[in-house]
Amino acid sequence: MRPDGPRDPVAGSDDGPSAPYPIRLSGPVIKGFGRGSKELGIPTANIPAEGLDEYPDLSVGVYYGVVALDPARFAYEDDAPILPAVLSIGYNPFYKNKTKSIEIHIMPPLSAPSPTATADGPVTFHKLPDFYGTPLRLLILGYIRPEFDYVSLDALVEDIRVDCEVARRSLQRPAYASYLAAGRADEEDVRGQTSWLTGFES
Rank of each mutant, 00 (worst) to 15 (best):
P56F: 12
H126A: 12
D57R: 12
R169C: 02
I82W: 00
I102W: 09
P122S: 08
D57A: 14
D4A: 15
H105D: 12
A181N: 09
M1W: 03
L153V: 05
E39A: 11
G142Y: 04
P81L: 05
M107H: 10
I106N: 08
R161L: 06
D159Y: 00
P43I: 11
P9S: 14
L87E: 12
H126C: 02
L197D: 11
V66E: 05
G32Y: 07
I23W: 01
F125R: 10
T116I: 06
L136P: 00
L139N: 04
E201G: 08
E158I: 01
D78K: 03
D159P: 04
D149Y: 05
L197P: 01
G41Y: 10
P9Q: 14
F94Q: 09
G36I: 00
E187P: 00
S178G: 00
V60D: 15
P20T: 02
I160S: 08
P22W: 01
T124I: 03
A72K: 12
A155Q: 10
L40E: 02
S114H: 03
V62N: 12
C164I: 02
G133S: 05
R35F: 03
L58C: 07
P48C: 08
I82L: 07
V123A: 13
L58Y: 04
Y132V: 06
K127L: 01
G34I: 07
M107Y: 10
L58W: 01
G199N: 08
A68H: 02
L83A: 04
G34D: 06
R7L: 15
C164A: 15
Y91I: 03
P20G: 02
G16N: 12
D57H: 14
G27T: 07
F131M: 13
Q172G: 15
P28I: 06
G121N: 09
M107A: 07
A49H: 10
P20F: 04
S152A: 07
D8Y: 02
Q193P: 00
L136A: 04
G121F: 01
S170R: 15
L128G: 01
L69M: 15
F94G: 05
G32E: 05
Y143G: 06
L25C: 08
L110I: 13
N46A: 10
P17Q: 04
P129C: 04
Y143Q: 06
A177F: 10
G65T: 03
R35W: 04
G41D: 10
V123T: 14
G61R: 04
Y21M: 06
D15S: 15
G183W: 01
A177L: 14
G65I: 00
A85R: 00
T124L: 01
K127H: 13
T118F: 07
N97A: 13
R168I: 02
G12Y: 13
A85S: 15
S88K: 03
A11V: 10
I82V: 15
L83Q: 01
L25K: 06
T198G: 04
R73N: 09
R7A: 15
